[in-house]
Design a protein around this nucleic acid. Structure first.
Lengths: 221, 221
DNA sequence: ATGTCAAATAATATCGATATTTTTGGAGAC
DNA sequence: GTCTCCAAAAATATCGATATTATTTGACAT
């Protein structure tokens, strides 16, 4: 007597579905920063019960994409320039730590994973922006995950998502020029494969700072 | 027709109450690491409904004190030596960043807060261990909060709590010797008041490393 | 006009019950 | 004796309804 509309055969759970859908909507700006998130409204939008919605919102609180106001419901996390700058700062700090640790643990299997992810990313860049975003994140996380520091990786992943949100908000996802991001990625990859930690972290941080400055300028408008 | 048993006049909310209570139980080890957290069981323990328990567990997931296993409920987060060491590593990294930023923003109001927190901590050390823990955390967070980096502060606070849990687990909360923690705190405070970032961060990290090594040795047993 | 208070409205938080899923336990086959 | 499979039990996930709490509205007094 229940609707079973998802064609995916992977994760069936009303809560998880609501979580992923809401996450997507907040990241892309479909649910704008600061917006009140009323249960009823979302219940209609995702056509599911109130409990899964509630729980999904609780989970999104962990990711700092949703704020809970004690007896007053939920709202999409607000944005600000200072928040953006803090995200950038922390990313540079944490990702440098993670990348250095990853390189310290470098082995053939990791190199294979890196090359693969990089290839997938290049391939996906010809498809839709959505595919590219996923592959881009996968590449960046692959750079870091060989550190074998799960907490650190989790923080980096969280911050990555928070940052991507600003990219969507600033540019509608499009104006995010190809610039020469592709070359930057290649430099990072090569340095990582050479196991040159200084060069790899240098390029990585440049990569972030450059994107950061670009977005920061967009935000002044 | 509802029970209103809390004598506190501050935060009334079944969810929030359950959250605080469960958090306490997990931090102190009353709910041991890895233990299955069955809704019914907790519902009885906290005498409240299933929904608040469920939501409290969701919130504790953010704090990494509870793990969610997709269609199989919740469990208290497991512990391991490598997890402990990662926490220590990240704490040293993040708190150094935060403390340096705090000192860079130093002003009279911050100094006042620091002195006050330090005083309260000393006073509380004569009372129960529970009071001391709260005051101790308040002092450490006061050292960091002048950085005005809310995300960073949140991470530091999370990691602080994860660490305190290991202290409870290793020592039952007691053997955590007074050592000369008091002197160490004084050194950190003095250096911060002098606005000597190198000295302050040095003492702070020493403080953590020393406690870390002590706990680490306890864990080999 | 303006500010305050009370009733009406809307939204959240919570409960109790049901449907789904996982886990357990035991009967039968090899 | 061990393994497989099916039924029984337990636990989770979800729903629908109610009680609580916040917010708005409008009347009244100043």
């Amino acid at each position: 007597m229940d609707a079973m509309l998802d064609t995916e055969g992977k994760e069936s759970s009303a809560t998880h579905g609501a979580y992923r859908r809401l996450r997507e909507m907040i990241l892309t700006g479909e649910l704008p920063p600061g917006q009140k998130l009323k249960i009823e409204q979302l219940r209609g939008l995702l056509d599911t019960g109130a409990s899964p919605v509630r729980e999904a919102l609780s989970l999104l609180t962990s990711d700092m994409l949703v704020e809970r106001i004690d007896q007053r419901g939920f709202r999409a996390a607000p944005v600000s320039k200072s928040n953006f700058e803090e995200i950038l700062l922390l990313r540079c700090n944490l990702e440098e730590t993670a990348l250095r640790a990853s390189i310290a643990n470098a082995d053939a299997a990791w190199e294979d994973r890196l090359v693969l992810r990089h290839h997938h990313m290049k391939k996906a860049s010809q498809n839709g922006a959505h595919d590219f975003e996923d592959a881009h994140k996968a590449f960046h996380m692959a750079l870091l995950d060989n550190a074998k520091l799960p907490l650190l990786l989790r923080y980096c992943s969280q911050l990555y998502d928070l940052n991507i949100r600003y990219r969507y908000l600033a540019a509608g996802g499009s104006s995010y020029k190809k610039r020469d991001i592709s070359a930057e990625h290649q430099q990072i990859l090569d340095a990582a494969l050479d196991r040159d930690a200084d060069s790899a972290t240098g390029h990585l941080i440049d990569h972030y700072r450059r994107t950061g400055e670009y977005l920061s300028s967009q935000m002044d408008s």
